[in-house]
Amino acid sequence: MSDFWIVERTASTWETTALRDRLTASGAQVELVPWDTLVPRCTPMGLRRVDQPDDVPRVALVRAEVFTRNTGTDLSTVHEWLDLLELGGTRLVNGSTPRRRCRNKVTQAAILAAAGIPVPETRAVRTAAEVDACLADWGEIVLKPVHGYASIDVVQLRAGGRGAPAGSLLGMREDTVLWGLLEHYGVLCAQKFVPNRRRDLRVIVLGDTIAAAFYHVSTAPDGSVRHFLYPYEWAPVTVTGALRGIVQDAMSALCLDVGALDIVESDDGPVVIEVNSDVSSWRPAEKSPYDLTPDGITARFADVLGDLLNQTSVRHRTSAQQRPSAQHRAPRQEGGAR
């Protein structure tokens, strides 16, 4: 049995290799496992390797590209196979259910709001009329895919676009774009726009530690931090007690072991735009002024995984100790339902 699987879909990155090397140096057995080499099995239960069906990891870290480069199957199927991995006895980093909830932007916002964490007002929209209602209530909105990533198909709309027909707040071009998005996705996440002061805040959390924090500062004329022609710049952040509390509460509400938060500083204080259930890239921050760990982000990540491995080992030992031996099992009653 391997101590760790790091499951990936594309070629290994610097982060994957660095994390493997750090874990291996601590004496752990680590396997880099391509997603397409895994198959679901009923007997024995689990998600197993084609070439090594008896190898079951104690802890598995599933990299972001397993979800973002998903082809040929519905995303829900990926989550269901991860359920099977957990049911087979593996401790999945972040857990299958928390990951599923986190990747749905509407569900995530609902969970965070219920926990008292500041998030943009959020609705699921399926029609132009529902988007019109959001524009009427909020004036300016952001539309995004419910299971989106990397800001793909994210659009910002303002009420009263050019050529809007009577009774509608959607301009002619906006209505066309919206039709295309709804035709493709069926349902979208609509959020009230929160001004970003030409910057947003990224916080990387590993276990109970804020491992890195930095601003993405816009260089674009429109203040966007996601403009391909105007890459953002980094700037340092002072982590206040209030910010730390919001970050920790968000991670706790979503039941995540690790994560990366995108936060905007509004006039009323920090607003959590999104919590990512993957920490996919940290090389630029490693041992930089933005790295808040004593020994580096990779080392802290490895420590968190090591803690999960130790917890898993304790649970397995406790389960074995509590399992009755054959001579102490209660005898089966004869007759009756079986």
Rank of each mutant, 00 (worst) to 15 (best):
H184I: 06
R158Y: 03
H184M: 11
E183M: 11
R158W: 00
W179D: 06
M172V: 07
G171A: 12
L170A: 03
L178Q: 01
G160Y: 12
C189Q: 13
G167H: 01
L178Y: 07
A159L: 11
Q156F: 00
L188G: 03
G180F: 03
L170Y: 07
G171P: 06
P165H: 02
L169W: 09
G163F: 01
W179Q: 10
R158K: 14
L157H: 13
R162L: 14
L178T: 05
A190G: 10
G160V: 12
V187N: 05
S168A: 14
S168Q: 13
H184F: 12
E174C: 09
G163C: 02
V177L: 15
L170G: 01
E183I: 05
G161P: 03
W179P: 00
E183A: 15
L181P: 02
V187D: 06
R158L: 06
G160P: 09
D175W: 02
M172L: 08
G163D: 06
R158E: 05
M172F: 04
Y185C: 02
G163V: 00
D175P: 01
P165S: 02
L182E: 05
V177Q: 10
T176A: 09
E183H: 15
G161T: 06
C189E: 12
E183R: 15
G163S: 10
A164E: 08
L178C: 09
G160N: 13
V187F: 10
E183D: 13
Y185A: 09
G180Q: 14
V187I: 15
R173A: 06
A164P: 04
R173E: 08
G171W: 08
G160I: 14
L170V: 10
L188E: 00
L178E: 02
T176H: 06
R162M: 12
G163M: 00
L157S: 14
D175T: 08
H184Y: 12
L157Y: 15
A164R: 09
V177D: 00
C189N: 14
E183P: 05
L181V: 08
P165M: 04
G186Y: 11
M172H: 09
S168R: 15
G171E: 06
A164I: 03
P165L: 04
L170H: 07
R173F: 04
V177E: 07
C189W: 10
R158N: 01
C189F: 12
A159P: 05
